[in-house]
Every structure is written in C-alpha cells, then in structure tokens.
Design a protein around this nucleic acid. Structure first.
Lengths: 244, 244
DNA sequence: TGTACATCAGTGAACGCGCGTTCACTGATGTAC
DNA sequence: TGTACATCAGTGAACGCGCGTTCACTGATGTAC
C-alpha cells in the first residue's frame, strides 16, 4: 500500500519535471492561459499510458503533472473518457508512424514483387516491435473504448495501421504475388494474425518465451501470414525473416 | 456520476439475489463457517468479470454479494490480485470447456483427414464464439496478469486452450494433412490468428462490422489459417466455414 | 490610442464515492483426555 | 460421554487513499467604440 504510494510519488515527480521542461521551452504565458493546455495534458497523459497502460491515464494526475488544477482539464475535455480517447488516438498514431518508418527504413528491392513482400514483412515487424517496446501505448491503443470507435473507412482508414496493410496488399496484387480473388478480406486475416501474436506475447502465455523462442515464433508467424495470404510458399527474400 | 452509482447499486442487488439463492440451496451453515467461501467468492467474482471484465472484479463487492464481510475474503485470498487470479483461471477453464464442447458437438467425419480439419475449425469457431458471447470473461482470461502466468508446458498445458490446438495439429500431421516439417510453431500461428481476430472483433475497429461482414471475416480467417498452416488449398469440408 | 466590458481559461476548495487492507474481536468447530 | 481448550473462520469498524467532477470565483485577453 505505502509502496504503491511511493511509486506514485515518483511518477508525479517525474511527470512534473517533464512538464516544467516542456513549458520552459515555450514562451512563458505567465501561468494563466497556458496556450496549449489541451495538447500539454494529452502529452502527459500519453506518457502515463506509455508507462502504465490505459489504467494509468488519470485525469487528476495529468493535470497535476502539467502544473494545472484538475478543474482546468474540463475546459478542454468533457470528461476523463474524453482525455483517454485523445491518448488512444495518439497511441494509434504512434503505431502507424512506427509502421511507416519501418517501410522506409530499408532500400527498396529492385524486383517489385520482392519489394512488396518486403513491405508486408516490414509492417508486421514494426507492429510486433511496437507492442514489445511500448506495451503501455500498445495496450492503450487497443483498450476497450468507451466512445464509439471511428469507422475503419473513415478517419482511422485515413492513415491508420489498417490502411497501411491494405495498401501493401494492393501492391502485392499489382505485382502478381497475391491473386486477385484472394485479396478480399486478406487485410483482416493478416492484421488479426500479427495483432494476436503481439497480444499473446505481451499478456498471454507467450510472455514466458525467451528471446530465442520469441524470435522463432515471430519468424514462423511471419512465414505463416505470407503463405496464408498468397496460398503458396513464400518465394525469395528468405532469411530476412530472421532479422530483428 | 450518480448514474454510475445507480448502475452499481443494481449490480449489488443482482449479485445479492444470486448469492442468497446459491446459499439457499446448500445446507444452512448458520452464517458462521460458510463452508466453501473460497469457491463462493470466486463464483460471484467470476460473474462480475463476465458482466464487466477484469476491472469489475472488486473484492469488497464480491464479499458483499456473497453476504460476508470484506475481511472474510482475506482468510481465503492473500489480496485482491489473488482473487482476480482465481477468476482468470476460471475464465480460461470456461474457454477450454467451450472448445472441448465444440469438438464433441458434431458427428466425427469418416475420413480421418477431414475429421481433423473439422476439429481444427471447430476449435477456432468455439474460440471466436466464446469471445463474442462472453466478452467479459474473455477479456479477463487474457487481461494482464499481476502474478506469474503458469508456463504453457505446466498447468495450462494440462487442458488449456493452447493444448487443445496442439493436439488437433498433431492429428493433422498424423492424418497427412499437415507436413511434419511445418508442424513446429504451427499452434502459435494458428492461435495468434484466431485470438487476434477475436480481440479485434471485440475491442478493435472490427467491432463496427455488421453481422454479415463479421461472418465473412470469420470465414476468411478460418480459410486463411488452414492454408497458412498446411501450405496448400484447404480441400474438402468446404461450406462448413459458413456455418455459425 | 485609451477605455469599458464580455469572454475565456484558469483557481482552489469541496463533494461523494468506493476501494483495498488491517485490526482487535468473537462465535463455532473439532480434538485430546 | 463430557468437558477444556486450541484453532479456525468469521465480524464490523476504521484507516488512508485518490479518484472524477462541480462550483463559485478571478485574473488575463481581446474587442468595440
């Protein structure tokens, strides 16, 4: 009990430092009229989510860490759920960013077919890595929303993880790797597989795997996705699956 | 706020009824020395989890609903996490039971190969259905544990979901559907896919799918798993995938 | 350019709530003789 | 078979905690004239 209290205290101190640093960089708005409190609160709350998952997003604590009264938060968020929703969106954005970065992180292969396979692998790898590196954010991104989720075909589809996968699958069709009749629904299957692996590695029984077993599982699943989607042995680009 | 209070009140009343019914059936132990308080508390807490997920597992409320002081719970559980852990185990057991029931729910097919494919499909279907029918329990089964998870090769493997899948995959090898060199790690891939689909349907963007789209997604993923595992077109047993 | 004033974005104190956990206690149970 | 007594499994009151949210308020900002 008091141990928890101590930990929380540490959190607060840490966040306070962070908050003052952030504000210190900007123009001093003489305390009143922070200028960008909405974003500042979301920043801090996102940091909390990163460290402790969705349950760590606490409105009062976020306000405290931002150096502002709790009531002030209600000028920018209708309630706690609204703040959490903003954090969730941040988490999803961060995931999508990581996936995009992964796409761009290596030289494109000369052969378009191989290149699109590489891209699919890169997306999956980034997804898993994000989950393992930032479990708090990952859990927050997929925690049960208390507000309606944006439709996949609306905002999220704009530039969300789902859309990235869809785009690469379209590439695979275009480059003859994926037969057209297999295309419909393929993004759901691919996404589900990678997402499931990520959550089982994080919170499920696969959390007990050592690093080697984990790498093997990831490689196996990566292969599995390609075969399952295309319906045939994944040619070329062998070995890449063993890369981190 | 007061709305929440009202809802909670309803919960309590409901659980109280339930608890008194349960105790009413058994022998009256004259209030003191309940006889099986540990199980009674776990029962009630599991019901709470069924209705509201892991966060709804509240020690005080469970004690209240069981008609017992909160302190009494500490004779049987070291703390709140211990109770939650018991509920988690119940949830996992319930999932495994549902899967086993699904295996036995239809006539075995005469052809052993087809039969083992049927069994794999049955497991996946049961998994998804459990998640959709009992989201609270499903979320609880896979919520982040604050205690060490039992190793897959230990208790859970005894009769857990994971083991069921492993067994059926062994059948697939035995019956020539799955080549032996593909067997290692296949249960992870299969499980991840189905698990991912379940969680995306529950809490992810796929929650927005209508019934028809959802059925299509499930069918597609089911096909995907078979192809991904075996490395070839799934022969036979076509059409069954469209069954609920 | 200066001033009156509406509006905006904060404050801080308080509210009620329910939680997990501890404590000294006491009634019921079972066992040794 | 009856009785003393240890142990077991409850009680109920209290603790401290921190949360989300509301309220009347006030200082800063920007705008109309």
């Amino acid at each position: 009990m008091w141990l928890t209290a101590v930990v929380n205290l540490r959190f607060v101190q840490h966040y306070d430092l962070m908050a003052s640093t952030v504000r210190g960089h900007g123009q001093h708005r003489s305390k009143y009229h922070h200028g960008d409190l909405s974003n500042a609160l979301t920043d801090v709350a996102t940091e909390m989510a990163r460290q402790g998952g969705p349950d760590a997003v606490v409105l009062r604590a976020a306000a405290r860490a931002t150096g502002v009264s709790a009531a002030a938060a209600y000028r920018h968020f209708t309630d706690h759920g609204d703040l959490l929703h903003a954090v969730r969106q941040r988490a999803l954005d961060a995931l999508a960013d990581a996936m995009r970065a992964s796409l761009a992180s290596a030289e494109p292969l000369p052969d378009p077919a191989q290149e699109s396979v590489r891209r699919l692998r890169a997306l999956g790898r980034a997804y898993i890595r994000f989950a393992l590196d930032d479990p708090g954010l990952f859990r927050t991104a997929f925690c049960r929303p208390d507000r309606p989720i944006p439709d996949v075909n609306d905002r999220l589809a704009q530039e969300g993880p789902f859309t990235l996968v869809s785009g690469v699958l379209d590439d695979l069709v275009r480059n003859g790797v994926l037969e057209e009749h297999r295309r419909p629904g393929a993004e759901v299957a691919a996404w589900a597989t990678v997402h499931g692996l990520a959550t089982l590695l994080l919170d499920g029984p696969l959390a007990l795997l050592n690093e080697q077993e984990r790498a093997a599982a990831i490689a196996k699943v990566s292969e599995f996705v390609l075969v399952g989607i295309t319906g045939r042995e994944s040619g070329g680009v062998e070995g890449e699956e063993h890369a981190q």
